[in-house]
Design a protein around this nucleic acid. Structure first.
Lengths: 205, 205
DNA sequence: CACATTGGGTAGTGGCACTATCTATGTTAG
DNA sequence: CTAACATAGATAGTGCCACTACCCAATGTG
């Protein structure tokens, strides 16, 4: 198909598709002439994925590019790469773990739970900074509460990985895993808000 | 204290503080003259809260204003307002529930779990849209999985509400609850990513 | 009384995600 | 075969957002 059909079927303006092509969110079509290129179903699927990551999850264009790049790079390998990539740039080789605030607490938690996670996982820093900010504002968590949250996260992750179908084309599988990991985030937060409202109502009587 | 001290103690430029004042994120100081106003510890606390919501959680200025407004409005009442406010504008009076996609599935889930949540909770729409998008992209969840996530959300909410101290000044308590609800979100997502990586490693060998 | 500071207002900045337009080329219906 | 239309690729422009810089008149301060 040509760009106009891609645009029609995805409801994304051609100008925006061209922008995504320039930004590397979408691989170029197969050029058939100087001013003509051919796109396939894979492009359509990818385009819808990009739109969902940007529109539903709210990722920036550059974050989307990085996530997609990491997925492509590790499509055949273990999918844990998904956990490594989100919410932060990948660590450059040889880069120091950075003087992360709150790292000690995070290390202690991970050790206590016996989790096996990379020393360089960006989520470590995100977690450390957030806990640190909470503490600075006088709303810090005690160890037990933090552990409780971590255990629930563990069970959520079990559900997440149960969703993955080990059959299926590696790239497609990686994209689906990405969808279920990243796009589920707004859904999980929404569930928590609903559950909070319910729990609050329950406690009030 | 005057604005320069507020700026120094919060590490926020005075120009930005003025901007927040104009935007209504910070209440005006007590004017002592035409070109002089007095700020107190409450302003400092509020300013730090605003910075955390914007910087750590990534809320927009207008979303921050709405959240803070809702908190102030319902400070004395039940705190479930927190669950009502996040991630979307408050519903105007008389506004229709909107032709929300995926609402049926959300209604079914909430009914099945026996949750008691407002018909107008924005989180309903967020959840519905996200599930719908996932389905449209071929990564929809089955009922059982969704229920599993919801039950974990329920237990997370229990932990959340356990953190709230029923003593304490209502406004301060509301602000702390806000911190623990909104600022915890990046931390929860980071925990999930770490847990995914761990679980993935566990399953691989 | 000289001088830095402040409140309040207005205008400018840089980044981001598009969006519009232009040109040279291709395709296609009549 | 040609007129009408579509396309790739490039460049420039738009609108929004979160600041940021500047200006002024009015203080407060040594």
């Amino acid at each position: 198909m040509r760009i106009s059909e891609l645009s029609r079927r995805s409801a994304v303006p051609t100008a925006t598709i061209k922008y995504y092509l320039r930004e590397g969110l979408l691989p170029p079509g197969r050029a058939t002439a100087a001013t003509q290129a051919e796109y396939d179903e894979g492009h359509l699927r990818r385009l819808r994925l990009v739109r969902a990551l940007i529109g539903v999850r709210g990722l920036s264009v550059s974050a989307t590019r990085e996530v997609l790049g990491a997925v492509a790079e590790h499509a055949g390998e273990r999918h844990q790469v998904l956990g490594l990539v989100l919410g932060a740039r990948p660590v450059d080789e040889g880069e120091e773990p950075a003087p992360a605030p709150g790292a000690a607490e995070v290390d202690a938690l991970i050790g206590e739970l016996g989790w096996e996670v990379s020393e360089y996982a960006p989520a470590r820093a995100v977690l450390g900074e957030t806990l640190e900010t909470l503490r600075a504002l006088g709303a810090g968590l005690d160890r037990a509460a933090l552990r409780g949250y971590a255990e629930l996260a563990e069970r959520t992750a079990v559900l997440d990985l149960d969703q993955i179908d080990p059959q299926a084309d590696p790239l497609e599988q990686a994209e689906r895993a990405l969808l279920r990991t990243v796009l589920m985030e707004p859904a999980l937060l929404a569930l928590r808000r609903l559950a909070q409202e319910n729990e609050s109502a329950r406690r009030e009587g």
